[in-house]
Amino acid sequence: MSDAGYDKQQAREAGEIARLLSYVLILLASVGLFVSATAIPTSRFEKLGAGAFPKIVFAGIALVAVIAIIDALRKIPAGAYGRFACQTVAWARRRYLVFVVLATLAVYLLAIPLLGFSVASFLFILGLELVLMPRRPATLLVAVIVAAVFSFGLNWLFAEVFTVFLPRGVL
């Protein structure tokens, strides 16, 4: 029992480190965008140019990010950094379905212009259902019907009722 509690503590520390990384990333991005905002030309008709508001926002982000970084550095014990890699792997493994879903979504989005909306959606829904569902014959039937309705059926609905034509594909 104490073992599980220990793990949780380590996982929390790893989460803090991941957040720290996100703050650093946000800080770098905001500084970079701040610099690029200075290149936006100002107008002689107003005191603030088009770049002024973005500069204020990015300066604000940078400021808050610095505070967040300092706050995070205080919270994370020194030993946590060494464990970060294996904690991250463990975290990713616990949530492997998330990565499966996001990867499937990416493939689906890329496939739409090629296969067309109907075929791509049918494959996407069915594929994802097969990954996520408890494998029983009855559910398989439901899965196929649902996939067909929400791909070919949706395409028909949008074309006929809303006159929105979803991508047809080149194949």
Partner: peptide
């Protein structure tokens, strides 16, 4: 169940963004 909801609603999201 979730295994039906997740893919179907994702397709609805795609349609919504495209439309």
């Amino acid at each position: 169940p979730k295994w039906l909801i997740v893919p179907v609603v994702m397709v609805c999201c795609v349609v919504g963004s495209f439309a």
